[in-house]
Design a protein around this nucleic acid. Sequence first.
DNA 1: CCATAAAGTGAATGACGCTTCATGTTGTAG
DNA 2: CTACAACATGAAGCGTCATTCACTTTATGG
Lengths: 189, 189
Amino acid sequence: MTSPRPLRADAARNRARIMTAAHEQITEHGPEVSMEQIAAAAGVAVGTLYKHFPNKSDLVASVVAASFETLADDAEECLQRESQGSPAMAELTGFLSRVMDTVAHNRAVKAAAYALGADHAAHPAMQEVETRVTQALGRLIRTAQAQGGLRADFTVDDLYLMLYTLPADQPPTARARWLALLLTGLTAR
Amino acid sequence: MTSPRPLRADAARNRARIMTAAHEQITEHGPEVSMEQIAAAAGVAVGTLYKHFPNKSDLVASVVAASFETLADDAEECLQRESQGSPAMAELTGFLSRVMDTVAHNRAVKAAAYALGADHAAHPAMQEVETRVTQALGRLIRTAQAQGGLRADFTVDDLYLMLYTLPADQPPTARARWLALLLTGLTAR
DNA sequence: CCATAAAGTGAATGACGCTTCATGTTGTAG
DNA sequence: CTACAACATGAAGCGTCATTCACTTTATGG
């Protein structure tokens, strides 16, 4: 399942460098950075990128999927804290708030959050991560509803919709305001 | 102020054709359509576009500003109906709902709505239209608050924030859901 | 240490888009 | 009707970018 033959030492090293560089570049400049720029940042020739990834969109998808993991980890930590007594609603709003801030500074995570709300599985690598997020957040939502803090008809899809419409490129005050407006609508009457 | 010398007959005709074609193309494909494509749709050579507009972004801005007028007209009609007895809050939600539907089908209006929430005046042509929208919606908001349907701290900027985050490319059901969630947060407690 | 397959290289290719300009066309004033 | 300015034309210039491939370099098993 993993690899018929292990990678040669230099190949593995370069692959790691490429992933790191691509992650940095996409985080900073978004998915539209050129392959040349990623290659330069990795200290590698363009051709090498194509030795490891069939084309640009595959490389980008890999990076975005990796950034995606960050969201999944965060969601699962929320669930963890909840099971240790933290109010579920507080965890949910904390999650939203953090994602929003991250998205504002990280164009790769932005793409990931966007993907959640859109083409639910632009890339196979994302599907399993999506499951993790969905399960963690779903649990959190149900608990929050049981505890009475969250309106009863709220679903995970609603939350994805919110991630999709995050005003990431707005100034912090506007982002906070947006979240506040939304939250009044979400708290149980 | 208008023109030192009137346009030659053919020039005027072509200018109109270009505006129409550009509007159609941008509506359908968004601001990233090529100049070639707009020229072809107008039945004109590329060079002619540059006889009428210094560059692409000026042409796009003109079209977007024109689409912008649609929003302003709608807002002013809302105000009109309100002064004839229609509840201000209903007019506001109607406005939002219509804008969302329009944006979903019209990439030019999308750019306009987006511009409202971002660079408040990407182009001089937009500034005066923005004023119209702001005045009409501001009045509507204050009336809705006086009538008790809208939360007291809601501002025009909040509304722009909502326009900015409209989930335009989501399916109609998702769009409706989004609006519903938001509205519960906006109605006066 | 060598043979060889794996990996790396980067100039070249082709596609596409905006913009310019030398040239040809046409409306219109007189 | 003519002459000229206004206008239109579209091929060519210039960039940018993804992708390929003939060739060189290098890791590694034997």
